[in-house]
Design a protein around this nucleic acid. Structure first.
Lengths: 240, 240
DNA sequence: GAGTGGTCTAGACCACGCA
DNA sequence: GCGTGGTCTAGACCACTCA
């Protein structure tokens, strides 16, 4: 039986507040309760509350001002997501009020090449399942993804679902909830990326080349996701 | 007199460890002292030590493994920087053992347009200084940057240095050390970006469109920096 | 001065990996 | 079992903003 992976208290609070923000309960520009207040209301230490607020700030949802309070950011339309937050793409799309969908373009089982083996920490030649999929929001292509997963870690009944539903969903069901991902960010201009009629003419993408890790630092997937430039907005809060 | 902006204890420790890592005192794959050990050695609480380790992890310098310890990442060559860390580009280049340089391409003082005013939180028409500069590492172009700064916040004697030396250096000297930046990440393919003979043929860039903020949430600069794809490596640790 | 966020501490208990 | 990191608490003091 896979571990349920209970969220931390800070994560729960962040999620709670996040939903209240995206649902509009807290309007843009409005102040959210102070740290002390949230502490009392949720019966949490201030450190924990701060951890949650930090997370929301790094997603660009809150602006925290010393001596004043925390305010809901005025963010525009479009799918906007904090790069530092590892979240399912489908979830992100859904929360923006759009309908996520997925189309598998190809799927094959084969031996891992040297590069894949190194990325995934498995042996060269060990079987992997490689999928190519298209991610849509309201029937519009937003990303093309090339994913590689060691076949051995996925229970057979779940294998056919790779590339058909959210990668996160499949991994979670296998008890392999990705906790972290180390991502490289690149700009790519290549008309050969992607497929189908909805492939953008410009062929311009933000590439997230990422290795997904479960808690123990063990890799569960290597994915290269090409986000169509302009259809997904990535935000990062950089701090010193 | 500008505030010296003392670094936090966590930042000091992170910086200390970072230098020891990049200098090779801790080799790749090696374990660094445990949290408890660092606590004792530096006479800091464990929370503070953890804050420092987190920062290094998010820069991709450390891999932290539950039950085992923290290990120096095996990172390859190339200028690699954690997107979540706001650092001077020059500093980043210098630490990679390369020589940073800067060339100002243009500079003008004029009224802020609507977009600039909104980004910087100033009035439309307020005077700004707009600079175009080229950033080099070992005489090779790595980025082109278009920066806009409200003229009023920079003391006149420092104005001529904008675009000639590190933006960070100038701002810091003016007592406006940027603490945070909210950045949008884009892929750009545009042969009109950049100038000079070293302009890459491909015209492909990772664009960081960022507003630099001082502590109080006040914007001090809006910069659009086009990093030549492939010459700078951006890494992000994404977590849930 | 009152209220807010920013930093830090000391200590607790849990979960993981290994011998 | 022991040492490691993961989470959380209660409380302290400081710095900023506004009245």
């Amino acid at each position: 039986m896979p571990t349920p992976q209970r969220a931390t208290l800070a994560q729960q609070l962040a999620e709670d507040l996040r939903l209240r923000i995206v649902s509009g309960e807290f309007a843009a520009g409005e102040r959210v309760p102070s740290e002390a207040e949230l502490s009392r209301q949720h019966n949490l230490s201030r450190v924990t509350v701060r951890t949650a607020l930090r997370a929301l700030e790094s997603q660009g949802l809150l602006e925290v001002r010393h001596g004043l309070g925390s305010f809901v950011s005025d963010f525009g339309p479009g799918i906007r997501t904090g790069l530092q937050e590892l979240r399912s793409i489908s979830e992100t799309i859904r929360e923006r009020g759009q309908a996520p969908a997925m189309q598998r373009h190809s799927s094959q089982r084969r031996g891992a090449d040297e590069h894949e083996a190194s990325k995934l920490g498995i042996g060269e030649g060990d079987e992997v399942t490689a999928v190519e999929r298209l991610i849509l929001a309201d029937d519009r292509a937003v990303a093309f993804s090339y994913d590689v997963v060691p076949t051995a870690i996925i229970p057979s009944p779940l294998l056919p679902r790779l590339g058909v539903e959210s990668l996160f969903a499949t991994l979670t069901e296998a008890g392999l909830d990705p906790r972290r991902a180390l991502a490289e960010v690149h700009a790519v201009h290549d008309p050969d990326i992607g497929w189908g009629t909805d492939r953008p003419d410009a062929g311009l993408y933000v590439l997230l080349d990422q290795v997904h890790l479960v808690r123990r630092g063990v890799a569960v997937a290597w994915s290269r996701t090409y986000f169509v430039e302009g259809r997904f907005q990535f935000v990062v809060l950089r701090t010193r």
